Amino acid sequence: MSKRMRRFHRLVSMVFMATVVFTAVALTVDASVVWVSYVPLLPLFVLMVTGITMWFRPKRRAATTQGTA
Results as ranks from 00 to 15, higher is better:
F45K: 01
A18T: 04
D30A: 10
T53H: 09
V21H: 00
K3Q: 13
Y38D: 04
V25C: 02
R4V: 14
T65L: 14
A62T: 06
F8P: 03
T64H: 10
R7L: 12
V12S: 01
V36I: 08
T53L: 12
P40N: 00
F45I: 03
V12C: 01
P58V: 09
M48H: 10
L42P: 03
G67D: 11
A69P: 07
L11A: 10
V25T: 05
V49Q: 02
W55V: 08
W55T: 12
A31N: 09
I52P: 00
M54T: 07
L44A: 12
R61Y: 13
F22R: 00
T28M: 09
Y38Q: 03
W35V: 10
V49A: 04
M5P: 04
K59E: 15
F22P: 00
A69C: 11
T53C: 12
T53V: 14
S2C: 13
M1K: 01
M14L: 12
V29A: 03
V21N: 04
H9Q: 03
R60Q: 09
A63N: 10
S32Q: 07
V21W: 03
S2M: 15
V34C: 01
A62S: 10
M17A: 06
W55F: 15
V20C: 06
P43A: 07
G51H: 04
S13G: 09
K59S: 14
L27V: 15
V15C: 13
V49E: 04
S13A: 13
Q66V: 15
F8S: 05
S2L: 15
V49D: 01
V25D: 06
S37E: 08
K59N: 11
V39W: 08
R6H: 07
K3F: 13
V12R: 00
A26V: 07
R7V: 14
T19F: 14
T28Q: 05
R7D: 12
T19I: 07
L11E: 11
T50F: 15
L42M: 07
A26G: 06
R57K: 10
Q66C: 11
T68G: 07
D30P: 06
M17G: 02
F45L: 03
S37C: 08
R57V: 14
R61P: 06
W55H: 06
V21Q: 05
R61I: 11
F22K: 00
R4F: 15
T53K: 10
T68R: 02
S37F: 15
D30T: 12
F22D: 05
R7I: 14
F16S: 03
V46M: 08
R6T: 08
A63S: 12
A63I: 12
V29C: 04
M54R: 05
F8I: 11
T53A: 15
A62Y: 12
S2N: 15
V20H: 01
R4Q: 11
V21K: 00
R57I: 10
T23W: 07
A63H: 07
T64I: 13
M48I: 12
V29L: 08
L41M: 02
W35M: 08
V46Q: 00
